[in-house]
Design a protein around this nucleic acid. Sequence first.
DNA 1: TGGATTTGTAACTACGAACGTTACGAACTG
DNA 2: CAGTTCGTAACGTTCGTAGTTACAAATCCA
Lengths: 140, 140
Amino acid sequence: MTQSSRFATAVHILTLLAGADDEPLTSDYVAGSVNTNPVVIRRLLGVLVKAGLVTSTPGGAGGSRLARDARKITLFDVYDAVESGGLFGTHSQRPNPKCPVGRNIAELLARRVETAESAAAASLRKTTVADLFGEVKKRT
Amino acid sequence: MTQSSRFATAVHILTLLAGADDEPLTSDYVAGSVNTNPVVIRRLLGVLVKAGLVTSTPGGAGGSRLARDARKITLFDVYDAVESGGLFGTHSQRPNPKCPVGRNIAELLARRVETAESAAAASLRKTTVADLFGEVKKRT
DNA sequence: TGGATTTGTAACTACGAACGTTACGAACTG
DNA sequence: CAGTTCGTAACGTTCGTAGTTACAAATCCA
């Protein structure tokens, strides 16, 4: 499992921005909804800016907004932006190359893992931030 | 990402056992191929025993062997046995319930995440330990 | 122009997970 | 009975994440 909360938090942030109708939201406001420290939010927003999903402006009346239509931001885009490394862990030490299994297992397993990750990615691509915000609105 | 090496190591162990033709392998021998400490292997073997994938016997001429045919052990079985928790992390703090997004986002996201995890699980079910050992043998 | 606001980022602490290691009792074989 | 091996407890190290404080830089508005 990706055992950081970055993906969930990033989705939360983007859903908030999707509902702000292009009004900039401050990291303080977002932190209030996520229930964490504004710096944690700003760190994550920095990554989202680099990924081209968000724009931020400092100063009075500053804040962050979506860089593009929420219908064009999929959950995979979000995952890809904020999580590094795959869904599955790999060997921590290089296995013994003198053993036939040790010499080959990492590569053979990596193939299957990549296939599984692709399947998960395809699934994540089916939902957009706009979809999530739409469901939130329906529940209001 | 599941950032432990337990899944990869467990697959490695089971592939070794699959090639042992029902001869018991010691944790010392397995540790030599995985390139780690025997206790790490025994800890993992304990989990695999509990999951019904492996049997172990102590004493001289003891060791571990597969509890069932390697063709009946899928990568999902292995993952499920040794990794707890999902592929994706969740919010570390409960979001603010006074905010419509905060109140709903965790549950709405969880649905999509479960779907993605199911897709990955289905993919892992397509490969067995016997498949991996077969490919190792082909490369020998 | 000057003060207030907000971002961006560095630095630090706290916490928990994973791994490696040592140690030793229990179980089993020959 | 001696030797082997597992099972497990205990401990230290390392690493990533989250939270916090602090402050410079950028921007807006009166």
